[in-house]
Design a protein around this nucleic acid. Structure first.
Length: 910
RNA sequence: GCCCGGGUGGCGGAAUUGGUAUACGCGCACGACUUAAAAUCGUGUCCCUUCGGGGAUGUGGGUUCGAUUCCCACCCCGGGCACCA
């Protein structure tokens, strides 16, 4: 017997698999997901962040794709021409490492990984237009990276400089600032980034700092969190440059501050140790040796170590002095490790009393302190204060600014400095230029040739692409393998035709992902990266979906690229992604799925054990998409059961339903309620999908499934039941596409449900009052039954219901809000009737506002509980075999006394 | 330290503008079908109770006829940023 049952489950699973294969084949054969560029439908672009081809899918991928596909399918059914592509971010270090490990080469390895990945993705049945697939390692893709590089070079957006850079010893390459997390490499949490000084290529993202910041406001449909992170990363701060002068030479010392109000309290000035002026100032003095030693000492530490939390500041006096322009005070100059060369001017004016860092430094080196801002209610003493005072207060010791609030003084002092020409207001950013050079093989070659005579010469456009050499010719394992390929390195100078060498650094792979969504628009184009007109039709991406881990890296770079390419004339868009959705992680046992925790669930096993529709639907059903999703075997089981219930429902009905016009007039009360529920389900589910509350949308559809399974509808109108079944199949189609396609066929519908028209809710049929009335009645029945049971009264003679209608309370509130008074209940009722009688156009302002308020309630659901129950009295009496007495409990005190809260009848059994 | 989120049953988590707190799902209990089991279906399921009620949405206050929702203070958890002058 047991064997039989197992066989049955197996058969079910097998059927699902057959169904899935059948429809995947048909979709492919009919090319129903191929984008029609000539279509007159509105274009809509749905995109998931393209994957790194790591070979095997993990749950995060499945969740990402389930979300994207459901949304793409939904939009397609709504009548949009949907662009929904897939591709592979296939350059990068893992390929090189795997190649070394598996004794293959990165190209072969990557191609194999893509193949595996694509096969697994196709099992899920996503509605991609596979004809637009791209892979970034392909020369017909990276060629355009090189073209963009040359364009940027021309525009001054790409440049080379020697700079301190972050180096990861494990990756054997430099990293961008954005790729350093907590001082470590973003790929190697255990490897501290080292500082090196190298000649490297940069993209001038800082030119766009302001635009990148300001346009965040236009991204209304991005998560606030991501916008905040980007805003902080750009780190714009308004401040003032104040020009101090060196006492002996009269040299200008510009310092940057956001607190010019503390200017009279400056007691020393600090230079970043690397600042060239430090060496200049001490040259030939008795301090020179010590200072140079100090500089070397600081150089040994990376910026990250130097600025680590809680680290004690250290510095050295230069033996030189600066003059404060506002009061001509002479103050000492230091070089100190807490000043950063790249930020501001690299020189800081220090006010120990009002800045904690300055305070600590002054304490350590015994420097002067001077209070210039006093808080209200207490007096600060520079000698006894234990920490800097950084809150608001009143200016003191600041000559003509004394007595002002310090916040007002910021503006006033800045203006005064500008007038005196000893300072000016400026803006500073934390954002640094994007370092794109990587000392790795598996990336886009930077199209530059170095010639001893001519310098760095860009490769002429006609010579693009600069192809990566055959990997089999390179030696992997040590430093950049590209340098080991002679044929690649040795070349001729495009200018003088003499011997020259190619740049062997390749581009950061984030360059590849910064514009791939543009390439999808015109993926086959061989002449240009993409046709301008076509790109403008699709861009910006209407819905972008991915993980929050790219909040800064990829999303900021892509925004920069879009703006830079716009300025190079490639397209018109200002922003790449109109709506961004960041999905939550998939977790198990309260923690991230990870090999080291041993809690990884392989999505393929779930597809194998159940089917793709179940796997997808579980991903969407079990949590709000932006929240964490806790993996649960039971949850998967529940989804599988639900899908089987849907099959049973359709099977039971398929020969007993019709799809003709529903004659609403002939429907019974029960049938009309069902019609109302069906339309309300459509309305809710549609709104919920639009808001990405896909789990609610599925729950809404599931409620209609449960409703329709009730016995009372067995003999309901054929066409009505048909309408409900059809609606259910359509509503579930974006989530369980294979199964719904099959059910669509079984109820003998033509074509594919995947491209059927999304159902439209007709408000006319939604009777919220009737639904609310039904719910009220159910509640009262239950309450009465419970009270009867509790009181153990078998045959009550009368049941009294005290009813205080909720809508009156709402009206009361409306009036209170409108009038701003506290009318009592009786007064409120009178006011309502007066308002109702008053001619609208003649009513005074406050009466009009009451009318408006009441109008809002008219539009929302409000039932007269008393009337609803009165109508049902006969039925209630039959149910309970007792007389039902209804009483109004209108006044608040009375209602309370009888425990009748508004909208909830109190029951008294006698 | 600063900036965002968030604290609700045994669990994951619902509550559109303040109006039945705990939707939906899991788990548990009982029942139906069955020789039995599985599957399926149905019913119940916050806590206490002297059976009148009473108490619960992190804690303490406030506004209100009525607060998970609004206001104030505090505690805890998650995330981001952090010698950026």
């Amino acid at each position: 017997m047991l064997i039989k049952i197992i066989a049955k489950v197996m058969e079910m699973t097998k059927n699902f698999k057959k169904i899935e294969q059948k429809w995947q084949k048909r979709w492919a054969k009919e090319k129903i997901f191929k984008v029609n560029e000539k279509s007159k439908k509105m274009p809509y672009y749905v995109l998931e962040m393209f994957p790194y081809p790591s070979g095997r899918l993990h749950m995060g991928h499945v969740r990402n794709y389930a979300l994207g596909d459901a949304f793409a399918r939904f939009k397609r059914m709504q009548g949009f021409e949907v662009l929904y592509p897939m591709g592979y971010d296939s350059f990068g270090l893992p390929a090189e490492n795997a190649a070394i490990k598996n004794k293959t080469n990165p190209k072969k390895w990557t191609e194999q990984q893509i193949k595996t990945m694509r096969e697994q993705q196709q099992l899920l049945g996503n509605s991609y237009d596979w004809e637009r697939e791209i892979a970034t390692y392909n020369p017909n893709y990276y060629k355009w990276n090189q073209l963009f590089f040359l364009n940027f070079l021309k525009k001054g957006l790409a440049y080379r400089k020697k700079a301190p850079v972050n180096w990861c010893s494990k990756c054997q390459t430099v990293l961008a600032n954005e790729q350093v997390v907590n001082g470590c490499c973003w790929r190697h949490e255990d490897t501290k980034a080292e500082e090196k000084r190298l000649e490297q290529w940069f993209f001038k993202i800082t030119d766009y700092a302001d635009e990148l910041l300001e346009d965040l406001d236009t991204l209304e449909e991005w998560p606030q969190k991501v916008k905040t992170m980007q805003k902080n990363w750009i780190g714009k701060s308004h401040g003032t440059e104040v020009y101090f002068t060196e006492k002996d030479s009269g040299k200008k010392i510009p310092t940057f501050t956001t607190r010019p109000d503390t200017l009279f309290g400056v007691t020393f000035v600090v230079f970043a140790p690397e600042h060239p002026m430090v060496k200049e100032l001490v040259a030939g003095t008795e301090h020179e040796t010590d200072v140079l030693k100090f500089i070397e000492e600081v150089k040994g530490e990376s910026l990250i170590d130097r600025l680590a939390e809680g680290k004690e500041k250290k510095g050295i006096a230069l033996g030189k002095y600066a003059i404060n322009p506002v009061n001509n005070e002479v103050i000492p100059i230091f070089a100190a490790d807490f000043a950063v060369l790249e930020y501001g001017t690299g020189m800081v004016m220090c006010v120990p009393t009002h800045d904690q860092r300055d305070f600590e430094f002054a304490e350590k080196y015994g420097l002067q302190k001077k209070v210039v801002i006093q808080p209200k209610g207490k007096e600060l003493n520079a000698h006894t204060m234990g920490k800097a005072f950084v809150d608001e207060g009143v200016m003191v010791n600041s000559e003509k600014f004394n007595g002002l609030g310090n916040v007002d003084a910021i503006e006033k002092i800045s203006k005064w400095l500008e007038k005196e020409r000893t300072g000016k207001r400026t803006v500073n950013y934390k954002l640094r230029d994007w370092l794109i050079s990587r000392q790795r093989f598996w990336g886009t070659p930077i199209p530059i040739i170095y010639c001893d005579k001519c310098g760095a010469i860009p490769v002429p456009e006609k010579d693009l692409p600069v192809l990566l050499p055959d990997p089999s010719k390179a030696k992997f394992g040590g430093q950049n393998p590209l340098t080991t390929v002679k044929e690649f390195v040795e070349t001729k100078c495009p200018k003088c035709k003499g011997d020259a060498k190619r740049e062997t650094d390749t581009m950061d792979t984030f360059v590849d992902s910064s514009w791939y969504f543009m390439r999808y628009c015109d993926a086959q184009n061989k002449k240009v990266p993409f046709d301008k007109k076509i790109a403008e039709k699709w861009l910006p991406v209407d819905q972008y979906i991915g993980g929050i881990e790219h909040a800064i890296l990829h999303l900021l770079y892509a925004r920069f690229f879009t703006k830079a390419l716009r300025d190079c004339g490639f397209l018109k868009a200002d922003e790449p992604f109109k709506r961004l959705f960041t999905q939550g992680m998939v977790i198990k046992d309260g923690r991230k799925m990870s090999k080291s925790f041993g809690n990884v669930v392989d999505p393929l096993e779930i597809i194998e054990k159940y089917n793709a529709d179940t796997a997808r639907m579980f991903m969407l059903y079990s949590a709000l998409p932006e929240k964490e999703l806790e993996w649960s075997d039971k949850g998967v089981e529940a989804v599988f059961k639900f899908l089987n219930r849907v099959i049973d429902l359709v099977e039971d009905n398929k020969n007993k339903i019709g799809f003709g016009k529903i004659d609403v007039k002939k429907l019974s009360g029960v049938e009309r309620l069902l019609l109302s529920k069906a339309h309300r389900t459509i309305l809710n589910a549609t709104g919920e999908i639009e808001k990405k509350q896909l789990n609610y949308a599925i729950a809404s559809a599931a409620r209609l499934v449960d409703e329709l399974r009730k016995e009372k509808y067995d003999s309901a109108d054929k066409n009505l039941r048909g309408f409900c079944i059809e609606t259910i199949v359509k509503l579930l189609a974006p989530f369980a596409p294979h199964l719904c396609e099959e059910l669509w066929e079984r109820i003998r519908k033509k074509g594919f449900v995947s491209v059927a028209e999304w159902p439209k809710a007709n408000e006319k049929f939604i009777d919220r009052k009737a639904e609310a009335g039904e719910a009220l009645l159910e509640r009262v029945k239950q309450d009465v039954a419970t009270v009867k049971e509790l009181a153990k009264i078998n045959k009550p003679k009368t049941v009294s219901l005290f009813v205080a209608p909720a809508w009156k309370w709402k009206a009361l509130k409306a009036i209170k809000e409108a009038v701003g008074e506290k009318p009592d209940f009786g007064g409120a009722m009178k006011a309502i009737s007066k308002v109702k009688e008053a001619p609208k156009n003649e009513a005074p302002g406050f009466v009009k506002s009451i009318i408006n308020k009441l109008g809002e309630y008219r539009d929302s659901v409000q039932i007269d509980e008393f009337a609803a129950l009165k109508e049902a009295t006969t039925q209630l009496e039959k149910d309970f075999g007792a007389k039902i007495v209804l009483e109004k409990a209108e006044k608040s005190k009375e209602a309370k006394a009888r425990n009748a809260l508004p909208g909830k009848p109190a029951i008294l059994i006698e």
